[in-house]
Design a protein around this nucleic acid. Structure first.
Lengths: 91, 91
DNA sequence: AATATATTTAACAATTAGGTTAAATGTTAA
DNA sequence: TTAACATTTAACCTAATTGTTAAATATATT
């Protein structure tokens, strides 16, 4: 969904921490909430920002909604940074 | 300065575009301003955010203040992303 | 069907961010 | 020293972000 969405999603420390949690595998929303000191509603909106950026995917299973990391989106950022660092004075 | 400052600095499209301009070499503030449609004051604040994040450095030369890219800070982000993508299910 | 559980959505308040214009600062040149 | 130029800082406004509580939705259980 574009680098803007991705960067914006990554600009919040709670959202970055959520991604870190999901590194180890998928988690239900409630378990994610337990790792933070803000309300479930607040985390829920952070999750929706991450989802909009396609950094996570969700899947309902019964009462629970599981979230999992989709790190592939970060490729675009890696490219952007590589380009920036890459060729200096090359025009 | 921390990953938070860096991510926050990168989350704005104008600031990312400024970094792109500086990729080719250093530029005076006024020349940077000319590339955008917002006021000089606005760009000046963007520059200060980038400077706080240590993504750029400035040097006054007479009337002009030249800005140059400091891409080394991006290393931290590369590491963060690598870590996120890296080892899945490794605990 | 009623209740309990998991999660999201809505409505609102507080804070932060980004833009503008006007004033201030630093430097050069007349 | 005054004027002109380059840039930043201050004051202000509006919009976006983040958090809260309360209500809504979806599912499971009794």
């Amino acid at each position: 969904m574009g680098i803007q969405n991705t960067m914006r999603a990554l600009s919040d420390p709670i959202r970055r921490e959520i991604l870190n949690l999901l590194k180890k595998g998928r988690m239900a929303a409630g378990d994610i909430v337990d790792h933070f000191e803000v309300t479930g509603a607040s985390i829920s909106r952070h999750l929706s920002v991450l989802k909009e950026a396609d950094l996570i995917r969700d899947k309902r299973e019964g009462k629970f909604i599981y979230y999992e990391l989709n790190a592939s989106v970060l490729e675009e950022i890696l490219l952007w940074i590589a380009d920036l660092k890459g060729e200096k004075n090359n025009d």
